[in-house]
Design a protein around this nucleic acid. Sequence first.
DNA 1: TTGCCGACTGACCGTTCGGTCAGCTTGGAG
DNA 2: CTCCAAGCTGACCGAACGGTCAGTCGGCAA
Lengths: 204, 204
Amino acid sequence: MDPSSSSKDRILDAAGQVFREKGFAGASMQLIARKAGVSKSLLYHHFESKQELWRAMVDQCFQRSGILERFYSIVASGDMRSLADFAEGEEGLFHFLGRNPGVVRMMNWLDLEGGFGKGFPDPCARDAVLARIREMVDRGVIRADIDPVVLPIVYMSICVNWFSARWKYLDWFAGERDEESIDRRFIRGAIDILLRGMTPDGKD
Amino acid sequence: MDPSSSSKDRILDAAGQVFREKGFAGASMQLIARKAGVSKSLLYHHFESKQELWRAMVDQCFQRSGILERFYSIVASGDMRSLADFAEGEEGLFHFLGRNPGVVRMMNWLDLEGGFGKGFPDPCARDAVLARIREMVDRGVIRADIDPVVLPIVYMSICVNWFSARWKYLDWFAGERDEESIDRRFIRGAIDILLRGMTPDGKD
DNA sequence: TTGCCGACTGACCGTTCGGTCAGCTTGGAG
DNA sequence: CTCCAAGCTGACCGAACGGTCAGTCGGCAA
């Protein structure tokens, strides 16, 4: 842990590591303090409780990664000409999530342990997402008979689950050089299935 | 908790409820014992440790749901004439998982907390799954240029994540009668996307 | 120099954790 | 009836938990 940064930042970083690895229930304040190189008491000097530290770590995780801005700019802006911008491009959400596996894993803990922390996407994202999808349907880049509610959930599910369960599938990708190239291959393959479906000619 | 069943079964049932809700780290033997209506000591009479109880509960969960037999019969048998049998039919894996949300949620805990418990799909499933996909490609029911490794992972991801995060999306499905009909609508929509893709005519 | 404040610590609190153990009850075999 | 094993319990253990608190320290303003 970098000793030059402020102790509060070091605590947040350590909390990020421990919480993301073990979840809320599995993490202990002792371990976070040890990883940050400070006493346990200092955690309570900067944060009211374990839940408060968790919340702060979630906020920092979202903020530092810029996922919310990225998400809303992709969803709400009008400059998305095709699905490629949405999913396939290096600047698309899928690759962005792929470049931030920690955030995605944290999102999975939020799903399972529920409760505190704002979660993502938050409730107010719904209308923006649905409006965007409806617009893309109007422009003909998304099939009209697709369920507009199901689509974003499927999209998120694939990404969120991958970064929790990928360790189970590492040996399925025998021959790949490293984990990063496995990630890339999975994302490319998943986007391909999402865009074009698994059947030939889009029919069963 | 049904008092007529054996105490060991009551413990396993209670462990299932608590573990699935709180995960391994978040669950306590005290609470499981209380839910089962027995003393904590009895848990240790029937099971060596907390890990052993977790493992037994995972086994019972897999066995009772019949998910492994179902999975291997779907994957390995030759009587699957089309993708409909694999995914869309009421007897397909997707609907089967939808009818067993507890198993799916447990699988998500296994993914995140890693470690003990055999997990699913187990490593030896890989070859069977890949052979099956290759055969379906040969018969022309799956596109030849699809990544055969990515497909089953995407498939599992959608299902596993849905039953962990569905509480976040309940209000996205405004107008649906109950949670069961939401599940049905999601599964139908997700299978539709999986089979046919989100683009019209299967192209971007 | 004094006073104050925020950063920081170690000792400590009550509680709960996973786990142990001696001993009680019960029912079937001999 | 005796015996024994299995089912079952409450009291208990040391460790770890989240959290508190009195107090030390360095820096800064007056």
